[in-house]
Design a protein around this nucleic acid. Sequence first.
DNA 1: CTTACTATATGATGTTTACATATATGTGTA
DNA 2: TACACATATATGTAAACATCATATAGTAAG
Lengths: 126, 126
Amino acid sequence: MFTYMCRTCGCSFRSRDFGNIERFIEPCILLLLSKGSSHGYGLMEDLKKHCGEKVDIGGLYRTLRRMERDGWVKSDWEKNKSGPDRRTYTITSEGKDFLKSATSSLTRTDKLIHRFLEGYQKSQTV
Amino acid sequence: MFTYMCRTCGCSFRSRDFGNIERFIEPCILLLLSKGSSHGYGLMEDLKKHCGEKVDIGGLYRTLRRMERDGWVKSDWEKNKSGPDRRTYTITSEGKDFLKSATSSLTRTDKLIHRFLEGYQKSQTV
DNA sequence: CTTACTATATGATGTTTACATATATGTGTA
DNA sequence: TACACATATATGTAAACATCATATAGTAAG
């Protein structure tokens, strides 16, 4: 979290969170779905643990629809006795491929962070 | 790098690199400036090493002006005999504060990546 | 005088994020 | 029955950001 001055009107406001990984939620979703199919609302709690403390539920649903359009997941409506029906998502083989490539991208990102943190620590000890 | 289908017309195309850190270039710039003042064009080569292989020079200049507006750096024009004049940037105390808070954000991001990578490896070995 | 390198900056466009709002079903309870 | 509340999915909007292209200008070499 990081607060500073609004860039247009000068008022105090909260910026977009700093240091987050772009679209990190997508491989997180795929990793969860690779363990078993689930639906949007059900994925929420697990994602809080994996992707940080807060998850935008609206964005989550939009992301899931986009991932289906991209072929990484497929969905089916599932009858629910104790509440509204659910759209259940299942990972596809393309989704598994993306999950794999995302893992190597994240490994590369991890190295960049490490290089940065090492550089910062060096600059502090001198 | 990651190629997939265009979301509107169906053609094959290269997406924005996946797994990038939002605004990672800003703490990288500040870390470099904390070692000594520099100018936009001069920061380029160093940033390629720290922020990944490619740096958008237009975006770099815009970022530097924004960082000055936010108070993290200040700039002065410097005469240059062998070429166009340079706008030299220097880190401020607010910039050093941000650099410190960015470091803890990135440490938190690093933990999220590690948790993800561990989870992925577990899912592969089972 | 043309090309290349250095140097800074803006225009245009698309993507992502963040927050708000809309809609609907089932459960408990006053 | 009416109401609040949890579950469940979805869209509207606007700011911020990324990406690629283009504009401008000084200096030096051929």
